[in-house]
Write a protein that binds this DNA or RNA. Structure first.
Lengths: 138, 138
DNA sequence: GAGGGAAGGTCTATATTAGAGACCGATTTC
DNA sequence: GAAATCGGTCTCTAATATAGACCTTCCCTC
């Protein structure tokens, strides 16, 4: 709120400085894990309700079991989701958001809303780019 | 259906439905591009001020030229950044956020703030996970 | 009691993608 | 005229993702 440009305040300058430090930087450290296709999608899945392995897989039809397992482990390791095994006959495993995972839904939701609101414009931009830059002129 | 959990409103159920449609889904379509390490970091870079190719490269020391070029092209194609060539003697190229790119800073900033605020807890969770799940007990 | 299906995975083999770094053309500098 | 800068491209290799076969335990059918 200290600038005249829309969002561009000093935070971004600081983040920029921090990115130089690579692994020491929270932004990179968290974003590298969190801002990835499947983990984000899994979080969205579990936002509605806790779900079991196969249910998440069904919700994300083009994820492989391997990636699903791997992504779930990572989210669990980062403390965003919890894994709970029920001793049913074919043992069932339920994944649910932790409070930390829940707390991420707000910023993530904002990003998703942005995505929905601007999807049309992005697609417009893409077709224009494709027509010009790679098509007839290139 | 509707639940009593904190953030969990019907948006997430809708998004979950949409993810099944894969490429037709704005969430996936945008997130696949946007929620990736380098593009996010480049956006942050350009948030502070327009910058030239080499400057962005310097700000992100461990990005390769190839990835930088590729990520810039993608952001340009999506209409988030604009590329402007100046006919200086060694021609210089400046990248700047478009209004669309600017508009993404708000949700992106929220996510980054979350990352900073929760980095400590995430790291705590990770070391705990590493100690238990893969270490002495496994 | 052999076979099959469901749950929750693992493992392997292959395709895709990222990263390192050589190279390029233009221009300026020494 | 050799070296360096800028903004890339190109190739080769390393890492990562995907598809899909397979595993184990239990219940059910035949």
């Amino acid at each position: 709120m200290t600038s005249k440009l829309p969002i561009t305040d000093s935070r971004f300058e600081r983040w920029q400085t921090e990115t130089a430090l690579a692994s020491a930087c929270p932004v990179r450290d968290v974003l590298d894990h969190v801002a990835s296709k499947w983990t984000t999608l899994i979080l969205i899945c579990l936002a509605a309700r806790p779900q079991r392995f196969a249910a998440i897989g069904r919700a994300l039809p083009d994820i492989s079991k391997r990636m699903l397992t791997q992504s779930l482990r990572q989210l669990q390791r980062d403390g965003l989701i919890a894994r709970q095994v029920f001793p049913t006959k074919p043992p069932s495993v339920e994944y649910r958001l932790t409070p930390l995972g829940q707390s991420m839904l707000a910023p993530l939701g904002a990003l998703i809303d942005w995505a929905e609101n601007n999807h049309a414009e992005i697609r417009r931009s893409r077709s224009q780019y494709d027509a010009f830059e790679s098509g007839s002129i290139g």
